[in-house]
Amino acid sequence: MNAGEGQSGVLRLSRLGRAWRAGLVVALTALFCAGSLVGNDHWWPFSPWRMFATSQAATGSVWSTGIEVRTADDPNTWVPARLTPENVGVNRAEVEGRIPQIQADPARLGTLAASHARLRPGSAAWLGLRVVRHKIIVVDREPTGEVETDVLAEWSAP
């Protein structure tokens, strides 16, 4: 598919070589544009490039989701735990996106405790796990220092 080296010392493409490349560019452009116009995250790699694309109200609250656990070392105290792939197999955004499912079936949180036990076999077992949402109050784009915390779902080991 190569037309070979021309007199100018430049390697030229054949007509066919040019045609399929041009067709590919048109197809990729169409897919990326369609993803940006009407697609969603499920279209990856043609999903919209929505890094920080949502509008956060200048006055309101910034939400930050986390987890708290009761461990076998201290079964009566809730302590914050890291909501990271290294600790529970999934990350914060992945849990934030499933809050309705978690609230409908809090037993799903038990799978995070099981993953933690596999990933951190030397740590104390988790006997309870709850998802908390911190609301950081912002007025005119400035955090006031006020934080409200809600418990969204809770699971205890049977």
Partner: peptide
């Protein structure tokens, strides 16, 4: 295209008001 289409996504999902929103404040808070 990553840059241009991410601006497009901000307009699509955040609306014109994105430029006056507290989105970067949110990012820094989190």
């Amino acid at each position: 295209a990553t840059y241009f289409l991410s601006a497009w996504a901000k307009l699509r999902f955040g609306g014109l008001e994105w430029v006056n929103s507290a989105t970067m404040v949110r990012a820094v808070v989190r």
